[in-house]
Design a protein around this nucleic acid. Structure first.
Lengths: 163, 163
DNA sequence: CTAGATTGCGCAATGC
DNA sequence: GGCATTGCGCAATCTA
């Protein structure tokens, strides 16, 4: 033993062990040649396969051998996983950046649209004013100083604007 | 010696060593009581401080002691860092989610704006049509079957639409 | 210089 | 059985 490994009260139920690493994670592989001593692998595995119960092992319920650290298989799996992890993380980061970019684009577009709205609104108001003026002119022309007739004044319409 | 630690050709110049861990990263601390044997710490540090050159060590250029694994200080630092890391990652994730949210909001707003533009455009076209109609009516009224007068027709204005 | 914040990386559990 | 994701710890670096 080397560490107390006190009871874990946290939700984290990881294993909490690591050993040496340091290898070139290239596709190639330079396996360790010779290592002297030092190999604390909690080797708490059964001896023979029949320990599982001798049955046909339905859903397969057995303790996994703590992954033989020196196994060739193990190193291979690790390397593959490391690669996958790197890939996944890169994509994740890329996605984040893309999202950020999207935000910027959308913001720009928004401004564009708002500007257009402003312009259209202005145009509309101008046209409406023209209309009103016209109406007044008409009213003044149609009812010249001929006399006082009880005709109702020009009907105005000023309710066409909705937020 | 414990591990080959082969020459690192990769850009990564990490250290590449880890040992056992597993501790509750709570604010409290339950220090390890007793640990037996097992302590492979590559203790390749100078003996006395004068090794640095005996000078006043300007930019301070000395190899860091590989962090005594069992040191109390060490564990404390690690724990703090682990906490910081967790915090940082949480914030990072949160930020990512916020950004995503922002995208959704902006998209909605965009649709809203586009709808408004559509509406305004329609209103505008209606008004313009009304105008044209009016102009025609005027033309028909101002120039009744009285004869051919060389008056220029109603000045139309149809160039007010941008983009 | 000390301490937290970031970041790259490997490990292991788990999802698919 | 294999890649993809994800939480986590370590160490180097950045930053305050």
């Amino acid at each position: 033993m080397s560490r107390p490994s006190q009871a874990k009260l946290t939700t984290s139920d990881h294993n909490g062990v690591s050993v040496i690493q340091s290898q070139a994670h290239a596709t190639s592989s330079s396996l360790p040649a010779a290592v002297a001593g030092l190999q604390q692998v909690p080797q708490l595995v059964p001896a023979d396969p029949s320990t599982t119960g001798g049955k046909a092992l339905p859903p397969s319920k057995m303790k996994k051998p703590p992954a033989d650290k020196d196994s060739d298989e193990y190193r291979q799996r690790r390397e593959r996983n490391n690669l996958a992890v790197k890939k996944s993380r890169m994509r994740s980061k890329q996605k984040a950046m893309d999202t950020q970019q999207r935000v910027n684009e959308l913001k720009e577009e928004n401004e564009r649209l708002e500007a257009k709205i402003k312009l259209l609104s202005k145009e509309l108001s101008v046209l409406k004013d023209l209309f009103l003026e016209h109406a007044h002119n008409l009213a003044d022309n149609v009812q010249p100083p001929t006399g006082a007739d009880g005709s109702s004044p020009a009907p105005n319409s000023t309710a066409t604007n909705g937020q």
